[in-house]
Design a protein around this nucleic acid. Structure first.
Lengths: 233, 233
DNA sequence: CGGTTTTTTGATCACAGTCAAGTTAGGTGG
DNA sequence: CCACCTAACTTGACTGTGATCAAAAAACCG
């Protein structure tokens, strides 16, 4: 049901044509660009279903994933209409997302002041997550980073009732995990092998298994963060 | 005129007593905690004058600086009143900052819907800066990180009309720079020496000298970001 | 079934961290 | 104004974590 190649091609630039729509739901195949760096920021998205990534591409070809997007997450907010987007968003799995015109969101805020506060609230939460992520990458060992990320992701899935019994979907490739954590894919592979051997966690066949949550939480100094529990838009 | 030791001690926890004030300007000596991790987020600050830092402290004693705060920057926004702050803010120099009660900011947004949008705008800009910072730390060499940071800081000072002719104030110690860039202080020292030798940039006596902006910009793949030009509050 | 992508494993290397000692500078008190 | 003391900076030698290079095995997909 995945990767219909010509369909994929067809939708590559198709997202812009949604722009005409004031508001609607769109279905996108895996590995599709939702928006690209340097695009004008005219749309706001909420992910209904599936996984997506926000990332930056560097001069040297390296990729830094900024954020893994799970169902319920809002993205693409760039209140300054004049400037360009500074990153790319791409689907991982098949995805359905809700699309808004930037303008209509702004209008909504005019008429419903509370929403402005809610958007700020969401953005502040995101910032808090970024803080954690930055600290993680900057000041922890490769092992800790990986464990932290797996626990965080599992915990986010749990909050969406999409995880239980230590198992949840996990459609990311090792290279994606590497680009989230600023590691090489080989290192990620070796660490996953080690965690599996140690009975801490395991990723296989697109699933994440948290084998010993307590021990992993402790060895990685993970602590539950306070994440946006309900979708905004 | 700096570092009056007992005065410093006295103000260590004094910021909380400001809370009574609905809104006011406060002067703080260097190396003073503005707010600490786990504090309830009841205040919002705008920096009028001086430098400050937002950072996280880790279990292992390491410190990750999230952000260098320059005059005009707003910080402490945590729209969720119930949760705790996840980082600490500390002054670097003597500082004067404008203090708001979180509540009065919220009320302002109720009556003036536009401000809600403006706050979102500011937060989105900050997020964009964080994206850049994360990418910088995750995917660039130590040399590039440092050059990038120096150029970024100079450029921010310039926008505040506090830089000219390749020179600006720079009150950070090498260990602070190290904690911004997730490097060891020794590495920062060696790289600064190298940049000085190469005629690219120099830091001394609390000043930053950009010696060859073009060459530095190119070697570090720096690109001007779009930063909040005007203060919000 | 064949081709491609992803994962796995091994060997080697290098960038930046750590440890240790010495130098400089800034701030304080006589 | 100078001497002292501490904090910050500097330099060198060595180490280690994680990157890189290379090649094989496995999984996935048409």
């Amino acid at each position: 049901m995945r990767a219909l190649d010509h369909f994929k091609e067809a939708t590559k630039g198709a997202v812009t044509e949604i722009e005409g729509a004031r508001l609607g739901v769109r279905r996108l195949p895996p590995d599709t660009t939702v928006y690209a760096e340097r695009d004008p920021p005219s749309l706001v998205f909420t992910l209904f279903d599936g996984w997506a990534l926000r990332f930056k591409l560097l001069e040297n070809g390296k990729r830094q994933i900024l954020n893994v997007l799970l169902p319920g997450d809002t993205f693409g907010v760039q209140p300054d209409m004049t400037s360009e987007l500074d990153h790319t968003a791409e689907t991982v799995t098949e995805v359905s997302l809700c699309v808004f015109k930037q303008e209509s969101v702004m209008q909504l805020f005019q008429s419903q002041p509370t929403y402005g506060w809610q958007l700020s609230w969401m953005l502040a939460h995101e910032q808090s997550a970024m803080n954690e992520h930055l600290t993680n990458i900057g000041r922890r060992t490769a092992f800790e980073r990986l464990g932290f990320f797996l626990l965080e992701t599992y915990s986010r899935m749990e909050r969406r009732d999409a995880a239980g019994n230590g198992v949840c979907e996990f459609p990311l490739r090792q290279i994606d995990v590497a680009d989230v954590l600023s590691l090489s894919p080989e290192t990620v592979n070796r660490l996953l092998a080690q965690m599996s051997r140690d009975g801490l966690a395991r990723v296989s066949h697109g699933r994440l298994y948290i084998l010993d949550r307590n021990r992993l939480t402790e060895t990685c100094h993970f602590h539950e963060r306070f994440l946006s529990p309900k979708p905004l838009l």
